Computed example of a mutant assay.
Amino acid sequence: MNEFVELGIYTQLARIGKALAHPVRLRLLDLLEDGEIEVDRLARAADVSLKNTSAQLQQLRSANLVVTRRQGNRIYYRLAGPEVSSLLSALQSCAEQRLADLREAIADLLGDPDEMMPVTVDQLRTRLDDPGVVVVDVRPAREYARGHIPGAVNLPAQELEARFDDIPRNVEIIAYCQGPYCVLSPDVVRLLRDRGYPARPLAGGMTRWAREGGTVQRGGQIDADR
């Protein structure tokens, strides 16, 4: 009988593994790290159809990894708790250490770490008050308002070409975007370097900052020419 009880326990544990065993679901969970979001916006951010997004969210909800809130005709999703974020962090860390194919895919997407020289969360923490550093959030203004690193200026990636003159040259720029596999900040760093600006990306972006206990500031907008 004990054998059947143990199998029952592992069957329940397997529900979590099954819920995570889909690339779209993992992508949706990463996006939900930024906080509650309406399902239509979540589908657009993931670049997945609304029908598919809703179906995948139902799978996550059945495993109690996400919860919902209804406001009128709108449905909002968020992570069920901080332990879900910790689980995602552990999964990604383990996969990056154990899967060479994943490390190669990340390097192809984000660039060679030796070339990009990303800043870690711990390194950035020690430099937030350094006048020789400007932290730049390259996400859209709406995402910046939902939560950003304290003191970060908002310079959306799509506005960079038109706002080079707003960026001081006598400082080091640390740029970040949404999550560990977001290409916006590496692309911005390359553009800044091409223009002669000293720039580095934040490893893991806003997601890793929040996961590792970094303070999150909400609302407001600070321009790059503050």
Rank of each mutant, 00 (worst) to 15 (best):
A162V: 06
I37F: 05
R139F: 07
F164L: 15
G147R: 03
M1T: 00
L128H: 08
V134C: 03
I9Q: 05
A152I: 00
I173C: 11
E212A: 12
A105E: 05
G35L: 01
G72H: 09
Q221G: 14
L202K: 01
A224R: 01
L20D: 01
P113F: 13
A14R: 13
E38D: 09
L99Q: 08
R139Q: 13
E96M: 10
R125I: 00
D40G: 14
V84F: 03
L60C: 08
L42M: 12
R193E: 08
A90F: 08
M116E: 11
E104T: 14
Y76A: 11
D223C: 07
E172L: 08
I106S: 06
A145E: 13
E115S: 14
A95Y: 01
R103G: 04
M116I: 06
A55Y: 10
L13S: 15
D129Q: 05
L87A: 13
G219Q: 11
A107P: 04
R44K: 10
Y10C: 07
L50V: 15
L91R: 07
E172D: 13
D223H: 10
T207W: 00
V121P: 00
E36P: 10
N64G: 09
D137H: 06
L13R: 15
L29M: 06
A210N: 03
R142L: 06
N73S: 15
S93P: 00
H148K: 06
D225P: 01
A199G: 14
E36A: 14
Q123V: 11
Q12L: 11
A162W: 07
Q71F: 07
Y181N: 02
S54D: 05
E143I: 12
I174A: 02
G132V: 13
D30G: 05
Q71A: 15
G8L: 05
T68H: 06
Y77L: 09
T11V: 11
R61C: 02
G147K: 01
Q58T: 12
Y197C: 08
Q59K: 12
V121F: 03
P131L: 12
S62E: 12
Q71W: 11
D194Q: 13
R61V: 05
D114Q: 05
W209N: 05
L91P: 00
T126V: 08
E3L: 04
L32I: 09
V133L: 02
V183H: 09
R190Y: 03
I106E: 04
A90Y: 10
D194N: 12
L110Q: 07
P201M: 10
L160C: 06
R169M: 10
A141I: 13
N170F: 05
L128E: 01
R193T: 09
G81H: 06
D137N: 12
A19N: 04
P140K: 07
V84M: 11
E38L: 09
A105F: 10
L91N: 01
W209S: 01
S185A: 15
L202R: 00
G219R: 04
A152Y: 03
P168L: 06
L50C: 08
Q71L: 14
Q178A: 15
R41N: 14
D130M: 05
G111S: 09
I222L: 11
Q123F: 04
I174P: 00
